[in-house]
Simulated assay, not measured.
Amino acid sequence: MKISDSVERIDGTMANSYYVNLNGEKIIIDAGTPGSGKKIIAYLESNRIKPDAVLVTHYHPDHTGGLMALHAKFGMDIYVPVGEAGIISGMERFPPRPFMPRFASMVMHAGHVREIKTTSEIPFKGIEPLKTPGHTRDSTSYILSGENIIFSGDAAVNLRGSPGYNRAFSASGETAEKSLREIESLHYLILPGHGNPMDFRNSV
């Protein structure tokens, strides 16, 4: 699904994964499930794209499951939220609560990639991390400032056409609500982790 001249949603993944061409830098936002990783690779190969980096919004396995396959294929840099690097790399145990993400991780058998960097090390100009915690403890969205686009992961998903979050999968409903309000207040095009884009650019 083409979003703009520089952004495309990679169709067929369980959680949304996006391709961004940022001034020649080729960036993937989120890596889907282990099965979705194969679809992302197929998309990249069919378009002759060698990614420079993957930016991860949060540690849930439907957003990180494809990292192993992508890294094995392309060896690109992987940038993850600072407070979730231990979980994504497998150096820290998956949190016991909430239960649903933990159960999903056991079912999906998502592996771990040790060769990761954190959002504090992102070198690309024009894309900025924004902490949007609540869904997970350090959930991070990414702002494409030149286009007024925000990749919100699961901090804002499309619930029947409106931004929301999944309470059963979220660590803190109160914090998630605050992050959701902040995302809405930006008046950007929201590209969520689940569902279609939501355009708030003309809602000032």
Rank of each mutant, 00 (worst) to 15 (best):
D11H: 11
A168P: 04
L189Q: 05
L67C: 13
P34S: 10
G146F: 00
T118M: 06
R167A: 13
S89C: 10
G164R: 00
A85M: 14
E128Y: 13
M100A: 15
L180G: 08
S141T: 03
Y18G: 05
V80S: 05
L70I: 13
V80T: 10
E45C: 07
E177A: 12
G134I: 07
V157W: 02
I149Y: 01
H112T: 13
G12I: 05
P133K: 06
T119R: 14
D5W: 11
I190G: 05
G24C: 05
Y79R: 13
M1N: 13
H112G: 08
M14A: 14
T136H: 02
S46N: 15
H194F: 11
I27Q: 09
L144P: 00
A171P: 00
P197K: 01
P95A: 12
G173K: 04
F124M: 08
S179I: 07
I27Y: 07
L189S: 01
I88C: 06
F74M: 06
K50I: 15
R137T: 09
S145R: 14
S145G: 08
F103P: 04
N202T: 07
D52N: 14
V157H: 02
S185E: 11
N16P: 06
E174Y: 09
E45L: 11
L130E: 05
V56P: 03
I143N: 03
G90H: 13
P61Q: 10
F103C: 06
F94T: 09
R102C: 02
V204S: 11
G12K: 09
R160L: 10
A155Q: 08
Y142I: 07
E177K: 14
M106V: 10
V54C: 03
V82M: 14
P123G: 07
S162F: 13
P95C: 11
S36W: 00
N158S: 06
Y188L: 03
S105R: 15
L55F: 14
A31G: 10
K38C: 06
A156R: 04
K178T: 10
A85G: 11
G83R: 11
I41C: 05
I88H: 09
E182T: 10
G173E: 06
N23C: 08
A31E: 07
S36P: 01
F200D: 00
L22P: 00
G90D: 11
E45G: 08
T140P: 02
Y43P: 00
P133D: 04
S145A: 11
R114G: 09
M108Q: 09
I87P: 00
L191T: 02
R9Y: 04
L67I: 12
S4W: 10
V107Y: 06
G75R: 10
H135D: 08
I49Y: 13
D11C: 12
G83V: 11
G161T: 09
N158Y: 03
D30Q: 15
F151N: 03
M198S: 03
H112F: 15
P34G: 07
T57K: 00
T13N: 08
P96F: 06
G153R: 00
D11T: 14
R97S: 15
T132Q: 04
G24W: 02
Y19E: 03
K38W: 10
S172Q: 05
S145E: 12
F169E: 09
T132P: 08
E121I: 02
Y19S: 02
I149V: 07
M1F: 13
F124V: 07
L22H: 11
H109Q: 14
R137F: 05
M106H: 13
T175Q: 13
